[in-house]
Amino acid sequence: MQIFVKTLTGKTITLEVEPSDTIENVKAKIQDKEGIPPDQQRLIFAGKQLEDGRTLSDYNIQKDSTLHLVLR
Rank of each mutant, 00 (worst) to 15 (best):
T12A: 08
D58R: 03
R42I: 14
L69W: 02
E51A: 05
K48M: 15
E18L: 15
K29Y: 11
K29S: 08
E51V: 06
K11F: 14
D64I: 03
K11E: 08
T66Q: 13
E18V: 08
Q2E: 14
L50K: 00
Q49N: 12
L43Y: 07
I36A: 09
S65Q: 10
Q40H: 07
I23P: 05
N25E: 12
V70F: 05
D64F: 05
I30T: 02
P38V: 11
E16M: 10
L15N: 00
T12Q: 05
T66N: 07
Q2H: 14
N25W: 12
K11A: 14
I36E: 02
I23S: 06
D52W: 03
T55V: 14
G47P: 01
D32I: 10
P38A: 14
Q31Y: 12
N60R: 05
V5N: 00
E16T: 10
K27M: 05
P19I: 08
V70K: 03
I13A: 03
Y59V: 03
H68P: 01
S65L: 03
L43E: 00
A28N: 10
D32T: 08
G53T: 11
T7V: 10
S57Y: 13
L56G: 01
N60K: 05
H68T: 03
R54T: 13
F4G: 07
K63A: 13
T55I: 13
K6Y: 10
G35T: 04
Q49I: 11
Q41V: 03
T9R: 07
L69V: 06
L43Q: 00
Q62F: 15
Q41Y: 10
V26K: 00
D52P: 10
T22L: 09
G35L: 08
I30S: 01
R72L: 11
S57W: 08
P19A: 05
E18N: 12
K48H: 11
E34F: 08
P37W: 10
I36M: 09
L71Q: 14
K48Y: 14
S65A: 08
Q40Y: 09
G47M: 11
T9G: 13
P37Y: 14
Y59M: 11
S20Q: 15
E16D: 14
T22H: 09
